[in-house]
Simulated assay, not measured.
Amino acid sequence: MTTADGAARPGARALGRAAAGLAVAGSLLHLLLLDATSLASLAMAATAAVCLPCAWQLWRRPTRSAWRTTVLADVTMLLLHAQLLGEPAAGGAAHAAHHGAAPGAPAWTGLALVAGSLAAGAVALAGDRRARHRRGLLPSVHAPA
């Protein structure tokens, strides 16, 4: 196995599959909020589709590269969605406007899914870094004595 293969570590496959499930659930949540008459809603569906290749990769073989891409996407989503929820009149209501409701359960559920995926990514990347350090693949941060 290569050093980039995160599946070599115990539990890596289960963690990858859990994160893949969170990504698919987030995509489905976005699709539930679709409104064909809203351009913003269609853009939201397109961005939800962006999650699926990472979910597939995390499900099959959770590599360090897939985890880094997932963490970057998660951070971006958290920043965008937090901004939408923080704008009561414009952004927050616009995100859920296709159903005429203020941000509620779907928005908070989405944030929870992204936060869970981000936590899984942090655990996976930290574990991969420790494993690579033990195998001598990373330089030591300590000065020689």
Rank of each mutant, 00 (worst) to 15 (best):
T2N: 15
A4G: 11
R9I: 09
P10S: 15
G16C: 05
A18P: 01
A18V: 08
A20K: 01
A20R: 01
G21A: 11
L22R: 03
A23Y: 03
A23H: 07
V24T: 08
A25T: 05
A25D: 01
G26W: 00
G26C: 09
L28F: 14
L28Q: 14
L31F: 11
L31D: 04
L31G: 11
L32E: 07
D35I: 04
A36Q: 09
T37C: 03
T37P: 01
S38Y: 07
L42Q: 12
L42G: 06
M44C: 14
T47A: 12
V50P: 00
C51D: 06
C54H: 00
C54W: 00
C54L: 12
Q57G: 04
W59N: 09
R60T: 07
S65R: 15
A66G: 06
W67M: 05
R68H: 03
T69F: 05
T70H: 07
T70M: 13
V71P: 00
V71H: 01
L72S: 14
L72R: 11
A73N: 02
A73E: 00
D74Y: 00
D74N: 06
D74R: 02
V75G: 09
M77W: 07
H81D: 05
Q83K: 08
Q83E: 07
Q83F: 09
Q83M: 09
Q83R: 13
Q83L: 11
L84P: 00
L85D: 03
L85R: 10
L85E: 04
G86Y: 08
P88N: 14
A89N: 09
A90N: 12
G91M: 06
G91L: 15
A93K: 02
H95P: 00
A96T: 08
A97D: 02
H98Y: 13
H99S: 05
G100P: 06
G104Q: 05
G104M: 04
A105K: 08
W108T: 03
L111P: 02
L111E: 08
A112N: 11
L113M: 08
A115T: 14
A115E: 07
A115H: 05
L118A: 15
L118C: 10
A120Y: 00
G121N: 08
V123N: 00
V123P: 00
A124E: 02
G127F: 01
G127N: 07
D128W: 11
R130A: 13
A131M: 04
A131C: 06
R135S: 13
G136H: 08
L137Y: 07
L137K: 06
L137E: 14
L138I: 12
L138F: 13
P139S: 14
S140P: 02
H142K: 11
A143Q: 10
A145Q: 12
